[in-house]
Simulated scan of single mutants.
Amino acid sequence: MADNLFLQTLLPTTHDLGGFKVHRTLPHRERTTIGPFIFFDQMGPAHLAPGIGIDVRPHPHINLATVTYLFAGAINHRDSLGTFATIEPGAVNLMTAGKGITHSERSPAAVRAEGPELSGIQTWLALPSDKEEMDPAFEHVAKADLPVIDGGGAQARVVMGTLWGATAPVTCHSLTIYADIVLDPGGAIPIDADAEERGLYLALGDASLDGEPLQPSTLYVLRPGVRATLRSERGGRVMLCGGAALDGPRHVFWNFVSSRRDRINQAKEDWKAGRFALPPDDHDEFIPLPEIVKTVSYP
């Protein structure tokens, strides 16, 4: 039965970062992308110790877009465009690196005293080859501006693209689908079959697809065209991601993604030489270029 639904089952690489865990399912040794998604991380869920927060120092990106989506907690975003934005649960931060951008991510001071919550998904989208060197950009879309499909004991928030007949206002640089599906106990929802490549990820609780149980923190690549129903017995939270297949292979080094290896080498030299601008209000420190790239690298 599972073979009729799933092309691949991608188990996570899990790292304990001292206070919280990160589960990474893309890139994976068996598959590097699902649609434009080339990086898929689940952070937490965790409640950090009082006085502690996350402090991801300024670092660079090229030729990709980052998508931050939280289930709990808050993160302050600052970037080299001068942007400052606080993301909270249900909203979206889309940062398009294009020809180059730097940013930092830190827990707001207001939540550090009691110990901040941290739970959510961070993804990277590879840009189409003809848009890799576009100008960098940032957009924040509030929770209230994202469409929600509600029924059958399920709430599905469309984060990017068009699903179940509703379209999110978030910019898509190529055909992209992304949704946050919350299932009540006994809830169910049909999974849209229109996108060329699709993945399902069980983030919290329990869920099954046409009777096949999904394992936590695991990314399931669905067969093209398969129509199936997602259900939960006790309640769960599932992310649906995917879109059109990429227009060619991508190279990945640290925070750099590109269709051209020489472009990544140039970005490495530019970062070492200090040719990337830092966020104007967060420029006193930065993450140096690693000699050996770790699977998960947070300061």
Score class of each variant (00 low, 15 high):
Ala72Gln: 02
Gly73Ala: 08
Ala74Ser: 15
Asn76Ser: 14
His77Tyr: 11
His77Asp: 14
Arg78Trp: 05
Arg78Phe: 08
Thr83His: 03
Phe84Ala: 13
Phe84Met: 07
Ile87His: 07
Glu88Thr: 15
Gly90His: 00
Gly90Glu: 02
Val92Tyr: 07
Met95Gln: 13
Met95Glu: 11
Thr96Val: 12
Thr96Gly: 02
Thr96His: 00
Gly98Ala: 07
Gly100Leu: 10
Ile101Leu: 10
Thr102Val: 12
His103Tyr: 02
Ser104Ile: 13
Glu105Val: 13
Arg106Ile: 15
Ala109Pro: 14
Ala109Leu: 13
Ala110His: 12
Ala110Glu: 15
Glu114Cys: 08
Glu114Val: 15
Glu117Gln: 08
Leu118Gln: 01
Ser119Gln: 15
Gly120His: 08
Gln122Glu: 07
Leu125Ile: 14
Ala126Thr: 04
Pro128Tyr: 07
Pro128Val: 05
Ser129Met: 13
Asp130Gln: 08
Lys131Ile: 08
Phe138Met: 11
Glu139Met: 02
Glu139Asn: 00
His140Ala: 10
His140Cys: 03
Val141Trp: 04
Lys143Ser: 14
Ala144Trp: 00
Ala144Lys: 05
Asp145Gly: 00
Asp145Ser: 00
Leu146His: 01
Leu146Glu: 01
Leu146Phe: 05
Val148Thr: 05
Val148His: 02
Ile149Gln: 08
Ile149Cys: 09
Gly151Asp: 01
Gly151His: 00
Gly153Cys: 01
Gly153Trp: 03
Gly153Thr: 02
Gln155Pro: 04
Ala156Leu: 13
Ala156Met: 06
Ala156Ile: 10
Arg157Phe: 06
Gly161Ser: 10
Gly161Asn: 02
Thr162Val: 04
Thr162Asn: 09
Ala168Arg: 01
Pro169Gln: 06
Pro169Ser: 00
Val170Tyr: 03
Cys172Ala: 06
Ser174Met: 13
Leu175Ser: 09
Thr176Gly: 05
Thr176Cys: 00
